[in-house]
Design a protein around this nucleic acid. Structure first.
Lengths: 148, 148
DNA sequence: TCCTCCATGTCAGAACTTTGACATTCCGAC
DNA sequence: GTCGGAATGTCAAAGTTCTGACATGGAGGA
């Protein structure tokens, strides 16, 4: 029978299904955010700033799982769009604390509703208990991989 | 208490944990594949061809969750490296069926061992039952999102 | 038969992301 | 006090991916 994971079938590989969900989610998010004039990395950045105002570029990069350089571009675009503000000089050290503008907060809240709808659609076939277990499993997997 | 998902905490959002795992996995895979002279999309392409020889560029693109254009670049690089071959003319229709060379198969098998080790490390904190449930949950979530 | 629709391969351009590198600033050890 | 390490912001360059567009080939219906 050779059950035991049956890894010769790609669909039985966790990495493959993970990639599949990620691709579908990313695609759905991009489509939902387009009418709001936002990209997925931009949305992630705004979401982080809403919860923790004053985050620096490097901290935002780590939180959104991109490089500092990429986040720098995102931040500049958001700044040009007037959704975030950064002081011209660092109040301390080199870090420039970023904060949301009122426009940024408004735009984020509007977009968030659509994103949460997508997450609901994604989690719809799962029971509350299953969703909880999933969240736990994902967290432990990430921790296991990050322990380098 | 306001349990119920507690979505004001990013760590309780499935999408966020998903992104976190994906980033960690992608990073680990890139690092593991580098010594083999492969990128993650190239590895995915070889893995697909090993299981289903004769796949066309468009089919490979869908299987690896990238656009046809991106897969075309991947395919050209693999072809230049002598790991895959494509006929110059389409035997039927426009599709050019791609197949692995002996070198490609050898390279893939060597790389696969390292990738499976990463998947094992990722799934290590999960029991067999948990891994099975996870696989099932991921599959259902992907299907839910793809149903557009 | 012809014609429309769909899928495929391909080209060009833009956008995004990453790698690599460097100067600046703070903090702790010596 | 001084030095070295670590973190931050930024610049330049390359690589990768995507969007948009077009021509070709095949299937099915009018």
């Amino acid at each position: 029978m050779r059950q035991e994971g049956a890894r010769e079938d790609l669909n039985q590989r966790i990495g493959y299904q993970l990639k599949r969900v990620d691709a579908a989610l990313r695609s759905a998010m991009d489509a939902a955010l387009r009418p709001h004039g936002l990209t997925t990395p931009q949305y992630a950045c705004l979401e982080l700033l809403d919860r923790r105002p004053g985050l620096s570029n490097a901290e935002l990069a780590r939180g959104a799982f991109v490089t500092r350089q990429s986040m720098n571009v995102v931040l500049h675009n958001l700044q040009t769009a007037g959704l975030v503000v950064r002081p011209a000089t660092a109040p301390q050290g080199r870090a420039l604390p970023t904060t949301l503008t009122d426009d940024g907060r408004t735009r984020l809240h509007a977009a968030r509703a659509d994103i949460l709808a997508i997450e609901d659609k994604m989690a719809e076939p799962l029971s509350a208990s299953q969703a909880e277990h999933l969240l736990d499993a994902l967290g432990r997997m990430a921790t296991a991989l990050e322990s380098d």
